[in-house]
Design a protein around this nucleic acid. Structure first.
Length: 896
RNA sequence: GGUUCUUUAGCUCAGCUGGCUAGAGCGUACGAUUCACAUUCGUAAGGUCAUUGGUUCGAGCCCAAUAAGAACCACCA
């Protein structure tokens, strides 16, 4: 392949991904589940939180894939058998909503069809829309094992879910109960608490007079405050606080329920807040969660007055039955007004529960549903969490999770939506609804009726909450089986969005511990929301949504990945802008051009046949050595006169070690920074520049290879494209070995840094002079300075001065402000004089620094208590600065 | 009410176990150009680390309080 002038991602990415996939490099190298001897150490597994099978990826998926793929690719290079397991979600409710909308457009309703027909229709609907998501995951470069893609309705998922459910049923952890559930009247299904959005809204609070059956002194009625007058027909008591002196005497008395004349008791209950409204609250156990609990405490009857269709039931009585809830409210208020029972009306703000999908007001409704006894599950999970069996990033989430688990209520897993996994429970055909013993477990959910022992049972029409099946995701995806060793379970890490900590992570831990007796993953990394560049939440209505695939098309997959990882740390909601993608693109292009330039040098040298042999030597010596030794590493061929080579070996080794630490601790942002500055500021700006003077072809090759490997997890396409374009590399980068340390001479490396100071100081001085309208065409003179003398060409090349030579014992011009060097910029006398002020300023500045250091040393506590090396460093600093000031002063004298 | 987080350069963020002159990207200013790269190169300006107090030889980091902002959970008759 020939190197073009700039890197064009679009020309490489599709082919490269296709080749990766075709050659099967994303499949784990070892797949053993038979329990053979196997070192689990060598395996690394993680699952992709399954995106909606028939949807498109959004920016959050972009972040997920970027993070997870860095991990997968890094550990693959490290030689681990890496299994990055992709998934696709049937997205029960989301998809259902889309499908139902489509049905409505055709003028049909879900109630026109049986569940089985609906299920088949949605299945076809999803198949038609499917595929985009998977293509987009590929475009992001995810190195996942496509052969193992799991769809959340796949047979193995269903069978695992049924096994678990059966176990829970047998263990008595599942029960059928008639309880108040969150119910969306629009979609006609129940929800878990977690699926409900609470929003603060303006509303009204009405005071209604409830007449006391017997007068209590002057008191003839109790005034009840309510926001929901339409539920008045379901009232089975009114409550006052037991501590409330005003109502002490009416507790146990009866009141007449307005509009009906029914007589209900006054109970004392903590739930009534004396501060709120009149302090008297009506109790409607069938339509309010708190009232439900009050009802249970006092053994009150439950009267359902709003049906599942959102209309009033016959319990509401003639004239109301059949009205919608809001119509009923109007009518109740009118009649109360007529009967002179309305005592007041106040504007208030209160939280109202909404369906998280359609926004309809959630109607707490009495329903018979399957519930999971979460207490036992949560307890097991909390025990493991408290033992620290799972490490959290950010660490505080562990406490947050424990706090949540300890306060969890039972979990309603029934959904009245056909699109999902059917609940494998059948009820005796003639049974009344109440008796749990009439239910049997059976997996033949494809049948509506089954016969067992001559008795007919009818299928429960409900499906599982999707979180019930996804809570078993790590178990399913890794093919975990009881009694068989599985090197991929527990997963090494669970990476996902912080906002599903409760919905998903908590449930995976509970179910994982329950089913496998092990935590399902060893570490959890949670990422925050991706916000727009001003820190605002992205939303369609604000028009600030960034589409990851558009970014990929425009700048390349690598650029997007580098961009989104930059400035990101665990658990934080963080801003993201196109700018960071641009800088990612620039890095890829920079590296491309570095490679192009190195290849050019290689071609030139090899064309002349000089180095072919040397390369062989370099390769052979590239063996792993004891990494514990300070200076151990791969032996490199050096030219004797360029310490830049030792320096770059040191820097690359440092970079490698920093990245290793960063990835281990999930500090992606810092890893990207480190790579960016190593490649750009160090390798390109200093090493490559100095290699223009001294070409060490074997070293250029080895260092470039090392950089490609280190950047590969972050920018897989560009690095692979370069790898395959270089003349001397073979195979695919994706399955190379992670680099080992490079050997270097630390003294030589430090000398190069010292030389960099000379170059920088020269440049700075030239800039200063230019600002003062002086020409920059000067030469450099050096005095007693062996380092500069030995590197004349390098210094000249990097500073672009006219000439460089020894001053032959006769220094002139401006001396560079460096302690360890005697170098002069050869400028005429008058320029030196003009520059006098500058020198004076410098003396003052260094003087201030010197004072600070001296102050530290005069403090006996510092000298005695601080670590010796710090004190030593401070003393050295004082020495250096004192010398420098002396010199500058001498110079001033000379000028004067 | 409960839990948790954030506050560092104009903007977005790093800063790991307390230890050299607090860093990066973008932006800004000034300058360069036959060179692998204008998706380039060089130089610079820009900070009371929210405030106050404490611990310490030493605090952006630890502790306490305050202020501002955010998220989640519970509740709101």
């Amino acid at each position: 392949m020939k190197f073009t002038k700039s890197y064009e991602p679009g020309e490489f990415e599709p082919q490269i991904y296709a080749e990766w996939e075709r050659t099967g490099v994303f499949q784990p190298r070892i797949r053993q589940f038979a329990g053979n001897e196997k070192e689990t150490q060598d395996c690394y597994a993680l699952v992709m939180p399954p995106p909606n099978a028939n949807g498109n990826l959004h920016i959050g998926h972009g972040l997920t894939v970027a993070i997870e793929d860095v991990l997968a690719r890094y550990y693959r290079l490290k030689g681990k058998s890496t299994w990055y397991i992709p998934g696709a979600d049937h997205a029960g409710f989301e998809t259902w909503v889309v499908f139902e909308r489509a049905l409505e457009k055709e003028g049909k309703s879900r109630f026109d069809f049986s569940r089985d027909v609906l299920y088949r229709q949605v299945w076809d609907f999803v198949q038609m829309q499917r595929g985009n998501m998977e293509l987009q995951v590929r475009a992001l470069g995810a190195s996942c094992a496509w052969d193992d893609l799991t769809f959340t309705l796949d047979e193995n998922v269903v069978s695992r879910v049924y096994q678990t459910f059966e176990k829970m049923w047998n263990d008595g952890m599942v029960y059928r109960g008639k309880k108040l559930v969150n119910y969306c009247p629009k979609h006609q299904t129940a929800f878990a608490d977690i699926e409900v959005d609470h929003e603060t809204e303006a509303g009204k609070l009405w005071d209604i007079g409830y007449e006391l059956v017997e007068k209590n002194g002057e008191m003839t009625e109790l005034i009840v405050s309510t926001t929901r007058p339409e539920t008045i027909f379901g009232d089975t008591a009114v409550a006052v606080n037991p501590e409330d002196a005003r109502y002490k005497d009416v507790v146990g008395k009866m009141v007449k329920l307005p509009l009906t004349g029914r007589v209900i008791p006054v109970v004392a209950d903590e739930h009534a807040d004396p501060e709120y409204g009149t302090g008297v609250v009506k109790i409607t156990p069938a339509h309010d969660f708190d009232d439900f609990e009050v009802g249970e405490r006092h053994g009150l009857p439950m009267v359902q007055v709003i049906g599942e269709d959102g209309h009033m039931t016959s319990e509401a009585g003639l004239g109301f039955a059949g009205l919608s809830a809001s119509e009923a409210r109007k009518k109740v208020l009118e009649q109360l007004e007529e009967q002179n029972l309305l005592r007041g009306e106040h504007e208030i703000e209160h939280a109202v529960a909404h369906c998280y999908k359609c926004g309809a007001v959630i109607e707490p409704t009495l329903k018979e549903q399957w519930f999971i006894d979460v207490k036992r599950l949560a307890k097991m999970a909390v025990e493991r969490l408290e033992k620290g069996e799972i490490k959290f990033y950010p660490s505080n989430k562990r406490k947050v999770l424990i706090n949540y688990l300890e306060n969890l209520k039972d979990w309603n897993i029934s959904r009245q939506i056909p699109w999902g996994i059917p609940i494998p429970m059948f009820q005796k055909e003639t049974a009344g609804a109440e008796d749990a013993s009439e239910w049997i477990f059976d997996t033949r959910t494809n049948l509506q009726k089954i016969e067992v022992g001559g008795v007919t049972y009818v299928r429960d029409e409900d499906t599982f909450d999707t979180w019930f099946s996804s809570s078993q995701w790590p178990i399913v995806c890794t093919d975990w089986l009881e009694g068989k060793e599985n090197p991929y379970y527990p997963l090494n890490v669970m990476e996902t969005a912080g906002d599903i900590l409760f919905a998903w992570v908590a449930r995976m831990i509970m179910m994982g511990v329950y089913v496998t007796k092990e935590v399902p993953f060893k570490e959890v990394y949670l990422h925050g929301l991706v916000l727009d560049e001003h820190g605002q939440k992205m939303s369609k209505s604000k028009g600030n949504v960034i589409n990851p695939i558009e970014m990929v098309t425009k700048y390349g997959s690598d650029a997007f990945r580098l961009g989104i990882l930059r400035g990101r740390s665990a658990g934080m909601n963080q801003a993201f802008s196109e700018n960071s993608v641009v800088s990612g693109r620039n890095l890829c292009n920079k590296l491309w051009n570095v490679a192009r330039f190195v290849q050019g040098m290689v071609d030139e040298a090899e064309g002349s046949g000089v180095v072919a042999k040397e390369i062989e030597i370099a390769r052979e010596s590239a063996e792993v050595v004891n990494a514990g030794q300070v200076n151990a590493g791969v032996e490199m061929p050096y030219s004797t006169d360029n310490m830049g080579e030792d320096w770059i070996c040191r820097e690359l080794t440092k970079c490698k070690e920093e990245i290793e630490d960063d990835i281990k601790e999930y500090r992606f942002s810092e890893a990207v920074e480190t790579l960016y500055s190593t490649i750009w500021d160090k390798y390109a700006d200093w090493f490559i520049e100095s290699q223009k003077q001294y070409k060490n072809i074997p070293l250029l090759k080895v260092t470039l290879e090392m950089i490609l490997k280190m950047l590969h997890p972050f920018a897989p396409f560009a690095t692979e494209a370069i790898w395959q374009s270089l003349s001397w590399t073979g195979g695919m980068l994706v399955i190379q070995d992670w680099p080992t340390r490079l050997k270097f001479d630390p003294i030589s490396a430090e000398r190069f840094e010292s030389l960099q100071d000379v170059v920088r100081e020269t440049r700075r001085l030239l800039m200063d002079l230019k600002s003062a309208n002086q020409s920059n065409k000067w030469g450099l003179l050096y005095g007693d300075d062996a380092l500069v003398a030995d590197n004349e060409l390098l210094v000249m090349g990097l500073t672009k001065v006219n000439s460089i030579s020894s001053c032959e014992g006769q220094p002139r011009g401006l001396r560079l402000a460096l302690t360890n060097h005697e170098v002069y910029l050869d400028v005429p006398e008058e320029v030196v004089r003009k520059y006098r002020e500058n020198i004076e300023e410098r003396i003052l500045k260094i003087g201030r620094e010197l004072d600070a250091l001296n102050l530290r040393l005069t403090n006996p506590n510092y000298v005695n208590k601080a670590p010796a090396h710090l004190v030593w460093q401070t003393r050295e600093g004082v020495k250096e600065k004192t010398e420098l000031i002396e010199r500058l002063k001498k110079e001033l004298e000379v000028i004067a």
